[in-house]
């Protein structure tokens, strides 16, 4: 690790002040992503601002019947919270599909949103990577790209966002509450992460002096018809090749409302309003699900090793929607795919 200084923030305002005072500073919450990257010399903050003790650990109901989740709520506490289990089981399931029990105990909501790509070149300082060292080139485009993105890529970067939680949050239409030097703001989770374009070093639209204080879940949790289906190279403790968050509101067999997001395929959780609109008013059948999958995957492009993801994602979307429609969500412990 590099030789950084350490400060403990006393409150959110203090954290913002400390960030402003040192452009090389970084916030640390659970540390599970930042410390990992610091040990690889990928992240070299001049100062760590410890926010882990800030009072951002509450889960409260909002006036409109949604939930507000503090940025420091550990992933496992969130997944196992009774209100989440009852009202937002899709989110609980997505969180439990990620990492390990130990890591989920440490990882925070804010840190999870901010976790960086697992692209092997990004992690290896001996290889070129535009995200790590802008302008050096992307090693993955013509290299090993089996794990890489098929949607929303650019000629600068084809990395994926590795978060499972974010995929469910995108599907649920969550909001991100942010505080910064110029006050507070709120943005939709789907606008929080960026596409790489020509600035792959920027993962999100969070300003450099800003801090995530909370996420907000809208009232509608799709608790009856949902599924989080994660596909990976071993049955646990591995990042997604493809994952799907699917949520439906049904009246009989008719779809009233649909939510669909993909993980492991793009620089951000991949959602398409068009695909969701196409489902609305339709019967919950494999055919309609297939058409929605095609819309969601419109424009998908394959590189040398990741072509399989396109067909895999398509099938996974259909399957997750079937699971959702039949109210048999994928269990994260029982590995047979429902």
């Amino acid at each position: 690790m590099n030789n950084f200084q350490y400060s403990r923030a006393s409150d959110v305002a203090d954290a913002i002040r400390l960030l402003a005072a040192d452009p090389g500073a970084k916030l640390i919450a659970g540390g599970t992503n930042l410390i990992d990257l610091m040990k690889e010399n990928v992240e070299r903050p001049s100062r760590l601002i410890d926010i882990s003790r800030l009072p951002l650990r509450d889960i409260e109901e909002t006036a409109d019947g949604g939930l507000r989740v503090g940025a420091l709520v550990p992933n496992s506490d969130l997944a196992y919270h009774p209100l989440i289990e009852q009202r937002y089981p899709l989110l609980a399931s997505a969180i439990l599909a990620g990492a390990s029990a130990q890591l989920r105990n440490m990882a925070s909501v804010g840190g999870n949103l901010m976790q960086r790509t697992r692209c092997a070149y990004f992690y290896d300082t001996a290889t070129p990577c535009n995200k790590r060292s802008p302008g050096t080139g992307c090693s993955a485009i013509d290299g090993l790209n089996r794990n890489h993105a098929i949607l929303g890529t650019s000629t600068s970067c084809i990395a994926t966002n590795p978060s499972d939680m974010s995929v469910a949050l995108a599907a649920l239409g969550a909001l991100v509450h942010i505080a910064g030097p110029s006050g507070q703001r709120t943005i939709a989770l789907t606008d929080f992460h960026r596409l790489p374009e020509d600035k792959p070093h920027l993962d999100t639209n969070l300003g450099s002096g800003e801090i995530i204080t909370a996420i907000e879940l809208p009232p509608h949790g799709f608790a009856r018809n949902y599924s989080y289906l994660k596909i990976r190279d071993r049955l646990s403790y591995a990042f997604a090749l493809v994952s799907v968050a699917a949520a439906l509101e049904l009246e009989g067999n008719a779809i009233v409302e649909a939510r669909l997001a993909l993980g492991g395929v793009a620089h951000k959780p991949w959602r398409s309003l068009e695909a969701e609109a196409a489902l609305r008013g339709q019967a919950a059948t494999p055919d309609h699900f297939g058409r929605a999958a095609d819309l969601l995957l419109q424009g998908a492009t394959a590189r040398s090793h990741n072509g399989f993801k396109i067909e895999l994602a398509r099938r996974a979307v259909v399957r997750a929607l079937m699971q959702a429609a039949s109210a048999t969500p994928q269990s994260q412990a029982h590995k047979k795919i429902a």
């Binding site: 697992r118 092997a120 070149y121 290896d124 001996a126 290889t127 090693s139 090993l144 190279d233 071993r234 049955l235 646990s236 403790y237 591995a238 990042f239 590995k335």
Partner: peptide, 19 residues
Amino acid sequence: FGRIMNANIAEYHIPVNAD
């Protein structure tokens, strides 16, 4: 590069308990 790109035990997969 002649470099191993999964020189760790997150991306070099060995079976975990669930497997």
